[in-house]
Computed example of a mutant assay.
Amino acid sequence: MVEKHIGVVDPTDAVLRSCLRKLVSRDLFTKQDIQELLEEAALGLDLDVKITPEFAKQIATEDLMPRFFGTGRCGAAES
């Protein structure tokens, strides 16, 4: 769905991911909170297709959550 840019890491993105992971590990944010933030961010992606809320949820669940948490697929039900 979202193209993967292997070897290209934006330092700002890495710092943001690290900060949010810390908040999750300290129980200040849940994975559901992160899911909702990523869904909102997905709505603003510049893709060649219209991004509906349903499509944004799919992008967040299938592409962004696993990359964010550095895991395989990660369902929205996890928290």
Rank of each mutant, 00 (worst) to 15 (best):
M1Q: 04
V2C: 02
V2N: 01
E3T: 01
E3P: 03
K4C: 03
I6Q: 00
G7W: 02
V8K: 06
V8M: 01
V9W: 09
V9D: 04
D10V: 09
P11Y: 00
T12M: 11
D13Q: 07
D13K: 05
A14T: 04
A14G: 08
V15M: 08
L16Y: 08
R17F: 07
S18N: 06
C19D: 03
K22E: 12
L23A: 03
L23R: 00
V24M: 10
V24E: 10
R26T: 09
R26E: 14
L28K: 05
L28N: 01
F29V: 01
T30Q: 10
K31V: 04
K31F: 04
K31E: 05
Q32T: 12
Q32R: 09
D33K: 05
I34L: 05
Q35M: 15
E36P: 01
E36F: 00
E36Q: 06
L37E: 04
L37A: 10
L37H: 02
L37K: 02
L38S: 06
L38M: 08
E40A: 07
A41E: 14
A41L: 15
A41S: 15
A41H: 12
A42N: 10
A42F: 13
L43D: 03
L43W: 09
G44T: 14
G44A: 12
G44Q: 13
L45P: 06
D46E: 12
D46K: 14
L47C: 04
L47T: 10
L47I: 08
D48I: 01
D48L: 00
D48N: 02
V49F: 02
V49P: 00
K50N: 01
K50A: 01
K50Y: 01
I51K: 12
I51S: 11
T52Q: 09
T52M: 08
P53T: 12
E54A: 13
F55T: 06
K57P: 13
K57Y: 15
Q58P: 01
Q58F: 13
I59D: 07
I59K: 09
I59P: 08
T61D: 08
T61M: 09
E62F: 04
E62Q: 07
E62D: 05
L64Q: 11
M65I: 02
P66Q: 03
P66F: 05
F68G: 09
F68K: 09
F68M: 08
G70H: 05
G70W: 06
G72W: 04
G72V: 11
R73A: 06
R73N: 03
C74N: 04
G75E: 15
A76H: 15
A77L: 15
A77S: 15
E78V: 15
E78P: 07
E78R: 14
S79Y: 13
